[in-house]
Design a protein around this nucleic acid. Sequence first.
DNA 1: CACTCTCCCTGAAAGC
DNA 2: TGCTTTCAGGGAGAGT
Length: 272
Amino acid sequence: MPELPEVETTIRGLSVILKQKISNVKIHTSKLRFKIPNNITNILRNSKISNLRRIAKFIIIDLDKDYSVVIHLGMSGRLKTVSSNYKRAKHDHFVICFLSKKLLIYHDPRKFGFIDIVKTRDLQKQKYIMSLGLDALSPDLTAQMIFEKISKSEVPIKQILLNQKIIAGIGNIYASEILFDSKISPLTLGKNLEISLIMKLIKSIRKILKKAIKYGGSTIRDYRSADGTLGNFQSNFRVYNKEGKKIGNDKVKKIVQYGRSTFYCPKIQNNW
DNA sequence: CACTCTCCCTGAAAGC
DNA sequence: TGCTTTCAGGGAGAGT
């Protein structure tokens, strides 16, 4: 599932479309999480891709005409670049065609993602961007900032990590991995996390996410970056989806928090 | 405002 | 084997 490392991997795989000129756009399905704006075709046609970047889990494709395409992959979204002899597959909802004959395809079986187009200068005003906390890989992220945000919170740290308003980019899989790495119990309430543990947590956030990016993203089954290469971080999951696995003299336990599965080692993650 | 829960959707996997 | 049910998860929106 696309979390920060998968989004980063996708963007790196998209570099082949940089500077390319768009010849056409095809919308096969406009009803994703939100409707794809009607004016997107007109704005995209004859534009050039000037830059590719990431804000948390959002992919930003900047155009040369002061507009930016915003793509969120939701849970099952993928972007792939293919050549002109490509045959459309099921769930290919949106296609950008380039003069070079290359195609950029948005593929999303569950349609939880969305595609938007906004004036680049208005990007930060979009409510889905505006509400985001600091990016999980931002060098500016400090334990003090997190402490101030969670020191009164009765919410368990696992759920806090998923809250994009506090730290942006972490999803359900890496939340478990990060907590295991920092030896913090997912059940710890925000208000009970002392600053030294938050420092440890931030170290683990950076370590786990960077490692996942290095391995090309992961995801549950068959995460592929935009150039089609298979992410292989999943073989590096220590606890996620590993219920019953022995680690030292402990065993991975699965619990459900707020309707989401959490995997952890009760004896190892025992900061009580 | 802060928090919790449901729902959107499809395909894979489990259950029968 | 094959049909049916359950589960997975990001985040908006409703409800408390």
